[in-house]
Design a binder for these strands. Sequence first.
DNA 1: CGTCCTATTGAAATTCTTCAACACTCGTGG
DNA 2: CCACGAGTGTTGAAGAATTTCAATAGGACG
Lengths: 250, 250
Amino acid sequence: MGDARNDKRQDIHNSEIPVLCRSCESRHKGICGALTSGQLVELSKHTVKSVYEAGSEIFPAGEKSARNANILSGVVKQSKLTSDGRQQIVSLQFAPDFLGRPFGRHNDVAVEAATDVRVCSFPASLTDALIGETPELEHRLHKQTLKDLDQAREWMLTLGRKTAVEKVASFLYLIATHIDPEMEATDKTVKFDIPLKRADIADFLGLTIETVSRQITKLRQTGVINIIHNRTVEVPDIARLRRLTEQDNG
Amino acid sequence: MGDARNDKRQDIHNSEIPVLCRSCESRHKGICGALTSGQLVELSKHTVKSVYEAGSEIFPAGEKSARNANILSGVVKQSKLTSDGRQQIVSLQFAPDFLGRPFGRHNDVAVEAATDVRVCSFPASLTDALIGETPELEHRLHKQTLKDLDQAREWMLTLGRKTAVEKVASFLYLIATHIDPEMEATDKTVKFDIPLKRADIADFLGLTIETVSRQITKLRQTGVINIIHNRTVEVPDIARLRRLTEQDNG
DNA sequence: CGTCCTATTGAAATTCTTCAACACTCGTGG
DNA sequence: CCACGAGTGTTGAAGAATTTCAATAGGACG
């Protein structure tokens, strides 16, 4: 990050870092990088690693979650429901993102595993206490919230103003660039697995399953993508896909 | 807020508070409440009050804004554009919200006055410096960012999964409850001015002007609202309007 | 082998948009 | 005082995009 505020990390020696945290991405890119080794030791005493199967619920909607977590691997979806059951996915999150709300705010969003997911969870009260003693921790959480806000607003443009093909192209482009950020620049063929099933893609794009399927077919027929298998996609020309995210001819 | 972290405000005496700030809503409900009187004096030396006419640009899109601001009055819209000119409003903001991005992050959003707007602006570098010395300030900014994120996600559900009538009802309900938060509970007839023109409402809802107009007509014909004048609306039964935000029959 | 889950495809129905015409308000200037 | 034009909002009819309903196919698993 090159952030001057990270100075306090200097007192961390590898030998003092809990085994649990040694190889964890959150310690570098995630929020745990704001903590001293002493704090990490304290945190790790209350920490549980767990695994959620694809489709299972991590935190229920509409409750102050008693625990927070860091994503270790997998993709997490957050979704909202209307009273009559229509669903909208409002966020996809990847390792090493933080899950849950600080300050006891309740969050009217259901948190579910989209793929199999591994997380490292700890009591929410502990997060709040650590925030109180470590401004750098709040700073990191704040930066993630700003990033989440940017992504939400970017997606509002997609939901409100893009056509069905553009939406599907935007989704594929989002996944491709999240799997490997380098991918944005490359001119080589790019191959990846879509971490969602069609129903989830539809709920993320504000479309029906059928429309998603038809648009994928259209992208395949025009050579923008190759479908290796339902979930496995090849993109021969990522720049062409990116162009399609904003103009459905092209 | 009843927040224990506000202790440092005890050293503020009214006599020491800059004239500029004395009657400002931001000092209580906004971010300035995190500052000591000394910091307020310092801030006020670099502060400018300005007025923007409805439709004028406050900060351009895609630049690191050199200044930040607090809204004193009026409604501010933030919008995103596709390369071919389609527009989506991603946020409406009211006094005493903070405008601009801390930490020199650039923000790919155009900030415009929806109504006539008064703001109190100051150099972004000063905000960053104050954040460094006052954790409570970052805490308040963080809380506003969390609120913005919740609103963005709520609106994603509206954009992705609601019908045209539901969208317009959601918009009217949003405005009604923002004009006066008490309004949510009342069973009396509620009257207010819509702060946006039809084109803006359309850009906020992901619809066309014509569809917005037709849905407003429909709501009028079914007695859900009375149109006093183009921008002036009466809602006889706010609970009925709220019900319409999630099911277009009702 | 049958069943469940996931995904695709077709045809009809619906919703929303596009294009076009018209109405209202407000300010300017003859 | 009235005419004119710009900006804003409404309405109708035709067209396009997406959804809905229905049928089918493939894979995973007991």
